[in-house]
Structure formats: C-alpha cells, structure tokens
C-alpha cells in the first residue's frame, strides 16, 4: 500500500527532524549529529540525506529508493545539555542494534527529552563554587575568593531572571558581566587581589562549549557550522568584555 508507506515515511521524518533539532540545539558537534541521525535512520529502515547549517537543517528522507520526503528543520535555541548528548547517542545505538520500531524509539526519545535539568539552586551554587575555585587557581587570596563567590551568585541570579522575563541574550550578558564585575570590584576597598577577583567574576559567562565545539566542527570539515558557532561565541565574549569594560572604567584608578 503506497498510502501507508507514505504515512510511515512522514512519521519517520517528523521524528528524525525532532531528533536532529534537539541534538543541534543542545550543543552537540555536527559530525556526531550526522552519525547519530544516520544510525537512527538505518534502524527505521529509511535513508537520510542531511545538509546542516547553523539555524536550519535540510533533511531528505527516502524509503526503498523511491518515495521521498523533505523537510527543513529549524534548530531550536536550547540550553546546552550534555545529558541529551549522551543519552540520545546511546539511543541511536540501541535502536540500531535492536532494530527498534518507530513508536518505541519515539517513546524512549520523549522520555529522555522530558527529564528535567538540574535545579536552579544547584546550578547557582555550582557556578559560584566554580568561579571561586577559579579565583584560587589564578592566585587570589581567600577574601577575593569569597567576594567572587558572592558576585557570581548575584550575577547568575540576574542572568536567570533576565533570561526568564525578557530580553536579548547579548544585552543579558552585558548586564550580567557588569553586575558581577562591579560587585567583585568592591574588593578594591580592601587590601586584596582585586584584579584577580574582577577577572574571575565573569568567567562563568564564557561560552566554553561552543568555542570547543566550533573548533571541533572546523577541524572535522563542517566549516560552516563551526565558524557559525565560533562567531556566536566570540560575540558573547565581546559582550562580556563590554560589561567588564564598564566596571574597569569605574575602578581602573585603583587597579594600576
């Protein structure tokens, strides 16, 4: 029945496009997305052809070399999520090895993507602890470490609030960088390593994952998506620099 075949094809490609969108959106480097997708497609008995860009993916799915279904997948703007990366990759192997049918794969996929992220408070504490340890690593003393910890907590909270209620990512980053660094800048009032405190207070904003993913993509031949990731990361770094610059302008006489 050609009719049922077409419906299966449509369902399969709808699922595959959702799978690709999630992987690309949550910070998986491009070659892994392509490999995982091909594996899932083999498990579902279809053939896929992909053309990956940084905001969309052009997807062509065909079955038995005849019927063809194309879609343009928009890549959603998801927060980076390595659990999805890990579990969705494992899902692709599981589907491939056990030849799982579409509805089972879809069910497992839905279960994975509905797992909640870490709670806000946990991430808040971890970001604070990470930035504070950074301050120690760069040779800051304990007072600076404490100030950086507090500055990060405030900055991270403001970032989450701004992200929830409004605004443009870049504006959020500028404001967050300014607030964190100006709180760390309070350290110039004390006899402590204030330049280290100010530097490290904004480091939790550095987009380390897109930077490294970008270089990986470029080196693996996905130059377009790689440079797109790098460009995005550099713009964020520039925004951090703008926020930091405003603080430095205010406190620079105490720093030199």
């Amino acid at each position: 029945m050609p009719g049922s075949n077409n419906t299966y094809l449509a369902q399969a490609s709808e699922f595959i496009s959702e799978y690709i969108g999630t992987l690309m959106g949550c910070g998986v480097h491009t070659s892994r997305v392509v490999r995982n997708t091909n594996r899932i497609a083999k498990a579902l008995d279809v053939e896929v052809h992909l053309s990956v860009f940084h905001r969309t993916v052009i997807l062509a799915v065909r079955k038995d070399g005849e019927a063809m279904h194309s879609e343009i997948v928009e890549i959603p703007n998801l927060p980076i999520n390595f659990r999805f990366n890990s579990e969705l990759s494992a899902l692709s192997w599981e589907a491939y090895d056990h030849h799982l049918p579409l509805h089972v794969v879809k069910e497992k996929f839905d279960r994975i993507v509905s797992t909640p992220r870490f709670s806000h408070n946990f991430m808040l504490f971890m970001a604070g602890a990470a930035n504070a340890s950074f301050c120690r690593l760069f040779g800051g003393d304990w007072l600076s470490t404490l100030i950086v910890f507090i500055a990060t907590l405030v900055g991270f909270t403001i970032k989450a609030l701004m992200h929830k209620h409004m605004s443009n990512l870049h504006f959020t980053v500028i404001v967050t960088a300014f607030v964190s660094s100006i709180i760390a800048g309070v350290s110039v009032l004390f006899d402590t390593t204030s330049d280290i405190a100010i530097t490290t207070s904004v480091l939790f904003l550095i987009p380390g994952v897109p930077l490294i993913n970008g270089v990986i993509d470029v080196m693996e031949g996905y130059i377009l998506t790689g440079f797109a990731r790098l460009a995005k990361a550099f713009i964020i770094i520039l925004c951090i620099a703008v926020g930091l610059a405003m603080t430095l302008w205010i406190v620079k006489n105490q720093l030199i």
């Binding site: 980076i80 390595f82 890990s86 971890m126 340890s133 939790f204 994952v209």
Partner: peptide
C-alpha cells in the same frame, strides 16, 4: 594538590551548567 582540587571543583561547577549526566 591545591591546584588539582580547585581545578576539579571548577570543572564540575562549569560542567554543571551544561547539564551532564550525574554519573559523569
């Protein structure tokens, strides 16, 4: 040791922002 310990905390902290599996 000091360097290693604080690097471990920093790694886990920044790692937490990208939501890795708990086991990792």
């Amino acid at each position: 040791l000091h360097d290693a310990v604080f690097a471990a905390i920093a790694g886990m902290g920044f790692g937490a922002l990208s939501n890795p599996p708990i086991k990792a």
